[in-house]
């Protein structure tokens, strides 16, 4: 988790964000894939609207995690606000995997732990990248797509998922020369539409 956070900080600074902006994203947005997508689009010269839309689409899965968590780990008031903010892949996975009587502890420990480390290492990564020379010399331009691939990998649990991933990648690459930066990824999201309508 630490180095993932550091790699986000480095990627954000490489994309032209300030260290402070990288830290605000990790504090407020706090959902890795969306953050990487946002800085990826901005770094490629994409519009703010395309960057925001991509981040929101990737963040939408947290809504469904939250629905699950609201029944598994009931919280009220301020605690619910805090719980919402730490509802991410990791905390949801741990809460679901833990025996039911420990679900609440697993959720909070994972959520808060990841939050602290993610933000700390975002800062370190951003400061580190600001000191370094050309990011391409360090291979940081390969690190970002590798991070996306690592996030994608566990989702490729069936042949249909692999086909969906291939279709998404193909749509984005075909669209790439014709539309502004950031938009190809949004168009790739459309490939799930026929899968939803058919049944």
């Amino acid at each position: 988790m630490g180095l993932y956070g550091a790699s986000f900080g480095a990627a954000a600074v490489t994309a032209g964000l300030s260290t402070a902006q990288a830290c605000v994203l990790s504090l407020l947005m706090f959902t890795g894939a969306s953050q990487f997508a946002l800085v990826g689009v901005l770094g490629a010269g994409g519009s703010a609207a395309a960057a925001v839309a991509g981040a929101l689409l990737l963040g939408s899965r947290n809504t469904l995690y939250a629905v699950r968590m609201a029944s598994l780990v009931p919280e009220r008031g301020v605690r619910r606000l805090a719980a919402a903010q730490v509802t991410i892949d990791e905390s949801t996975a741990m809460a679901v995997a833990a025996p039911q009587e420990h679900a609440r502890a697993a959720f909070w420990a994972t959520g808060l732990g990841v939050f602290v480390f993610w933000n700390l290492f975002t800062l370190l990564g951003a400061l580190g990248a600001a000191q370094l020379g050309d990011p391409a010399d360090l291979g940081l331009d390969a690190l970002v797509p590798a991070a996306f691939l690592a996030l994608l990998w566990p989702q490729l649990v069936a042949r249909s998922r692999v086909a969906l991933a291939a279709a998404g990648a193909l749509v984005a690459l075909v669209a790439l020369p014709f539309v502004p930066a950031g938009v190809p990824v949004l168009l790739a999201g459309l490939v799930v539409v026929p899968l939803l309508v058919r049944r």
Partner: peptide, 13 residues
């Protein structure tokens, strides 16, 4: 399904 398509597109792009 959405993250699968989006992440794959991000890797490619």
């Amino acid at each position: 399904l959405l993250p699968v398509a989006l992440l794959a597109a991000l890797v490619a792009v």
